[in-house]
Nucleic acid binder design. Structure first.
Lengths: 152, 152
DNA sequence: TTGGATGCAAACTATTTGCAAGTGC
DNA sequence: GCACTTGCAAATAGTTTGCATCCAA
């Protein structure tokens, strides 16, 4: 895309980065937009998306995708794994790993050049577990495709 | 959604499932549509999506999402990990794991109830590595958000 | 015969893009 | 002043949905 472009500073982009660096919430583009609207009443969603893409490209933030219809963004550029609550859709950082052995295992098993990996854990977060007599939370459609080790 | 619905047989759904069971290619909805068009000249994309969702719901197939704009589908319902080529976008099955220790590690570190996990490995597939003097393949935009253990 | 399944087209949603005006360097 | 950025609105792309008709049980 616009890989080699020289980027100017902009209050908008700086604010987006700041917001992401100071939250653990992994917000969506829309959430970032809503939050920054207070400071920039004329802010547009297009600008938010444009800047998020620039920041991702610069490796300052990360784009998270695991099954909802929309992406989330992570201001923590340091490699780490995630836990995704299948009830409320929230994303939590995990403080384990990285497990380089996994990559060795993968490399040994296939002939491809393995450069990186990503692990997502799924389940029910403490928050949802507590308010659990109601069982089904206001969920943003959970995920499929995960390795269930203990099927119940 | 339509969880408890009783589903009739349909040639279309059967064919979609057959196709997915007999390929290792993890095709997209569009690719499935194109392939089945030969047998069902009047097939519609809507039908393909509807049936894919039913099959996912029935745990007969899995929906894969790792960063492209579109989803892929996996006829292998047995838990397994994937390797995604960052150059050509192809998805390969890996024959390692599942690593239940990971889940224990995660459970210990957070208080959430961890039910499942998923691992994706990223890199360059053998195919792309070979035709590599040309370097940039016809890529469908690679992924972000992965743990790079050895930055080169 | 009844309610799910299909084809078709229109609707939706998240994201991207074109353009004229604004702005950092 | 040049080129990047912005806001706005229109455009995309992938997926979903409404509806009349079709078809499996």
């Amino acid at each position: 895309m616009n890989e080699g472009k020289i980027h100017r500073n902009s209050k908008q982009r700086t604010s987006i980065l700041e917001l992401l660096k100071h939250t653990k919430a992994h917000p969506t583009a829309q959430e970032i937009f809503d939050a920054l609207r207070e400071d920039f009443p004329h802010l547009s969603l297009g600008t938010v998306y444009r800047n998020l893409n620039i920041l991702v490209e610069q490796d300052q933030i990360r784009k998270l995708q695991y099954g909802s219809t929309f992406d989330r963004f992570d201001g923590n550029a340091v490699p780490h794994y995630h836990f995704i609550c299948e009830s409320c859709g929230r994303v939590y950082d995990l403080d384990i790993g990285p497990f380089r052995e996994l990559q060795n295992a993968a490399t040994e098993q296939c002939d491809h050049t393995v450069l990186s990996h990503k692990i997502d854990f799924f389940g029910i977060c403490t928050d949802c577990r507590e308010k659990d007599s109601i069982h089904e939370g206001t969920s943003t459609s959970p995920v499929g495709e995960a390795v269930t080790l203990e099927k119940n």
